[in-house]
């Protein structure tokens, strides 16, 4: 992990309240699931950095996808090409690739798409379920559809795109219809993750979830993001954000 300067190359809306930012940045190589702490302002008024997953990384470039959630992400959305940010990273652990012939099932909802899409792009096979309230909330659909070996299943609560319902409805069907072992990779609202864990348990599939919690430091020192697991308290930022879903004490918070 390092604190490195990043220069904004592009920053544009790609879905409702959702922005894609391209950065020139010499960050150490990262793995799908890892994240950054982004200093959105050099002014001390916006004091804490924002934890944001890495969507993509190239030679000296970074891509982040973020949703407007508050003042920090609003400030980020105002950045113009040439503006400079500081990013601390890469932080946290990563997803583990499919093992022993597992088929990959990727599940994303809410703000959970970036790490899941980063992983799906890297693995290049399996099925990707993207859940959202409505069609206009789903970013980067073309990119998802361009992943050759990955079948994409959009699911919307209002039925405006793909199936009407929840991402986990489709996950349940994919698990039930799977011919062999599956690995489920999920990021999104806690309720969705808990359901994905439950469905994976029933289907005897391995399930990894990337958790999101309020955090202050992002590298393990402040203990703000400690979650309860069967192995004891774990910090989402430094022990995670990716966890074996079966170890999470879903009821405790």
């Amino acid at each position: 992990m390092n604190d490195v300067q990043a220069v904004v190359k592009g920053n544009r809306a790609v879905a409702r309240d959702t922005f894609l930012m391209d950065l020139d940045c010499a960050l150490e190589p990262s793995l799908p699931g890892q994240f950054l702490m982004v200093k959105v302002s050099s002014a001390r008024e916006l004091f804490l950095r924002r934890p944001l997953a890495i969507l993509g990384q190239g030679e000296g470039t970074l891509e982040i996808l973020y949703k407007l959630k508050g003042e920090g992400t609003l400030e980020l959305s105002r950045k113009k090409p040439g503006d400079v940010l500081w990013v601390l990273g890469p932080l946290g652990n990563c997803f583990s690739p499919p093992q022993n012939g597992e088929s990959a099932l990727f599940v994303a909802g809410g703000t959970g798409l970036p790490p899941v899409l980063a992983l799906a792009s890297r693995i290049g096979s399996g099925a990707l379920v993207i859940g959202a309230r409505s069609k206009g909330d789903i970013p980067l659909l073309d990119r998802m559809n361009s992943l050759k070996g990955v079948a994409v299943y959009p699911v919307t609560e209002d039925g405006s795109l793909g199936r009407r319902g929840m991402a986990t409805d489709v996950l349940g069907e994919l698990l039930a219809g799977a011919a062999g072992p599956c690995a489920v990779y999920a990021c999104g609202p806690r309720g969705m993750l808990e359901k994905a864990c439950e469905l994976s348990g029933v289907a005897a599939a391995r399930c990894e979830v990337s958790l999101e919690e309020y955090m202050a430091c992002g590298f393990g020192v402040c203990s703000a993001c400690t979650v309860k697991t069967s192995a004891g308290p774990r910090r989402v930022c430094s022990n995670g954000p990716v966890f074996d879903a079966a170890t999470i004490a879903w009821g405790a918070r």
Binding site: E45, F47, S223
Partner: peptide, 21 residues
């Protein structure tokens, strides 16, 4: 320590309730 959330940003600072974990 305390239940989550344990931190919240406020202008020029933050409020924490880590609970001495």
């Amino acid at each position: 320590g305390n239940p989550l959330p344990r931190v919240y940003e406020t202008p020029c600072g933050l409020i924490n309730a880590i609970g001495l974990e």
